[in-house]
Every structure is written in C-alpha cells, then in structure tokens.
Simulated assay, not measured.
Amino acid sequence: MQNDDGAVAGAEREPERAGQRPEDEPNAGVVTAFGRQLKLLRLRAGLDRTEFGKLVGYAAQSVASFEQGRRIPPPRFIDGADEVLDAGGVLKALKDEVARAQYPAFFRDAARLESEALELFLYAVQAVPGLLQTEEYTRALLAMRRPLLDTDTIEQRVTARIARQDIFNRWPAPLISFVIEEAVLRRPFGGRAVMRGVLERILLIGQKRNVEIQAMPTDREDNAGVDGPFTLITHKGGDQVAYLEVQGRSILLSDRDDVRSVAARYGIIRSQALTPRETTEFIEKLLGEL
C-alpha cells in the first residue's frame, strides 16, 4: 500500500478516474442509502440541517452533501448522528460499509486485509507509505495526480488514508515493518515544511515497539528491490498475501509460491537496508538539512 489503493486476488481493476464521485463507484449504493436514511431520521426528529449540524459539529452544507450522497461521511459523524437522532444503531450498522466506500474501488479489498493484519511488511520506492503520511503530505501527493482529482475527492481520500493509521492503536498490536528508499525520504512533496512534518512523524511512529522502519541508501550496490514496491500482509491463521501496485492498477497475490517468493525478497531487502537505529540517525540528519 505504497500509494495505498488495491485489488482482488489474481486480478486487475480499472484505475480511479479524475474527479470521481461516490456514485461513480460500485459501493455508491451504500453511500446513497445511508444519505437517504440520514435525511429520514433527521426529518423525523424535526431538525433542519443547520440545527442538526450544530448538534453533530458539522456545517449544514456538509450535512446536505452526506444526505445527497455527494460526500462520504467519516465515522465520527456517523456515531454522532446515530446518537443525536436516536437511531438505535441503524446508522452505526452501516459504518463499516460506508468506510470501505471511502477508498478507490481497487483498494477496498486490500484495505480490509490491512485493517485485520497480524503482520504488515512494506517496501516503498516512490512515496512515504500511507500509514506514515501526514494530512499535509497526503494532500500534496493527491494534488499532483494526473488527471487531476477534484477537491472533494482529495479531501475524501485524505480522511480515508489518515483513518487507516488507527492500526497503530490496535491491541494486540500488529508487527509492522517498513523499508523505504532514501530517494523517498528526500523527495519534498509539498515543500520543505511538509517534508519536515512527515519525517518527524516517521521518527515518532518508529519509536513504537511493534514498528521497525529502515531506510535503503541510494548508494547501496546490492538492492533486491529492483522489481518495485510491494506489501506483505499476514492475517489470521498465518496465511500471507502480497499486494502489488503500479500506475493505478493493483494485484493481490494469494498463491503460496508467489507469496513465498515476495516474502523471501523482502527478507533480503531488509538485510541490505540500514538498521532501525541507523535509520533514525539518518532521518535526523535529513531533518537537520531542511
């Protein structure tokens, strides 16, 4: 989940399209149904959008977008709306399905596997992995996409990507390992201030006991990562899948021989990279250069 968007096992999905709205994707029905249910419950409660918005902490314009299915509501809004409207869990029951609709269609299966993972091993060559990004970095990254994404889509993707970082608060804590190419850590998406923020976040997350972050120096003569980025996901039962992504297309590999090959490659890459302690010193040096 290098750029954090995936597929179904052994198959390819079409890439996302510029300015894509929720109703343009397969899960649009869930978002539309949620919006209609929300409106019915609000009207039953005798609240206009402004009154309701004040109670849940959202502007009337945002409430209208949620009701009309033009924006995907975040989990915090769904929880608050269910309580304010005395919905008895009706809205909360849709929360998981609505959450999955936040992601591009081709990433939803991978996002579900990631959220349930016991182990995650990521090799990043183009951008800082989504689990380590800051809002500012994610927004800058998405703003550079071509064809252009509209503002609502960018904000939706930012919210979804940052929400995935709840994985760091899970218990039992999953084992997470990152190997990041040096060029990624030097590429100033969004400018120096944004890059400083994301490097500081990497250092912060790297202090967690269940997380190891390693940098791969550009001057390494030996680097087994020549075939590009990938993610290994271990789920319940110990089975692994490998996630590959390039140019808006992605594949989830489940064949044991294929996955075993990717896992072996990751072990070699890891051995060739800086150690976590050396990586911390390296990133601190980069920060000093900004």
Rank of each mutant, 00 (worst) to 15 (best):
L204S: 13
V179L: 04
D219Y: 13
F107E: 11
R112C: 08
V262M: 12
I268N: 01
L290P: 05
L232W: 01
P26Y: 03
L118T: 07
H235G: 11
R157P: 02
R277N: 02
R196I: 00
A140V: 01
R71L: 13
Q2V: 00
G80S: 14
R196F: 00
R164S: 09
V84I: 15
I78D: 06
G57V: 01
P229H: 01
T138Q: 13
L290A: 13
Y103L: 12
A173N: 05
A263F: 03
Q126M: 06
A93K: 15
V63T: 10
F121A: 15
V198E: 08
R100Q: 14
R186Q: 07
G57D: 06
R249T: 05
R44F: 01
E12Q: 09
A105M: 02
P26I: 01
R108F: 07
N27P: 02
D79A: 06
Y58I: 06
T218K: 00
T218P: 00
D166I: 00
P22S: 11
P174R: 15
P15D: 04
L38M: 13
A101R: 07
G197E: 14
K54S: 13
R71G: 01
I213P: 02
G237M: 01
E135S: 12
T275K: 03
E51G: 08
K39H: 13
I205F: 09
T231N: 06
A263N: 08
E67Y: 13
T234I: 00
M195A: 09
D258H: 12
L274K: 13
L244T: 07
V31P: 08
D86H: 10
G89E: 04
E278Q: 12
G53I: 11
G57H: 07
R209Y: 02
P174K: 14
A273L: 06
A9S: 12
R157G: 02
P188Y: 09
L132T: 05
G130P: 06
T151G: 00
F107S: 14
P22I: 08
R112Q: 15
D96E: 15
R265A: 06
A124P: 00
G228E: 10
I268G: 00
M144F: 03
M144G: 14
V56N: 12
G69L: 10
A9T: 08
E14N: 08
I72G: 02
N27T: 09
R192C: 05
D255W: 05
R108M: 04
L199M: 09
E284H: 12
D219H: 14
L149H: 03
T280L: 05
N27K: 14
F282S: 06
M216F: 03
G190V: 07
F106R: 04
E212W: 05
I202Y: 00
L118Y: 08
R42M: 04
L43V: 06
V179A: 06
A99H: 08
L274T: 10
T32R: 14
V246S: 09
S62M: 09
R49D: 06
K208L: 15
G206V: 12
G46E: 05
W171A: 15
E182W: 09
E116G: 07
E16M: 07
Q272T: 11
L91S: 04
A11Q: 09
L274D: 11
D48V: 05
D82L: 03
A105C: 02
L148V: 10
E97Q: 15
L91C: 04
A215L: 07
V184W: 03
E136Y: 01
V158W: 10
A215H: 05
N3P: 02
P74S: 09
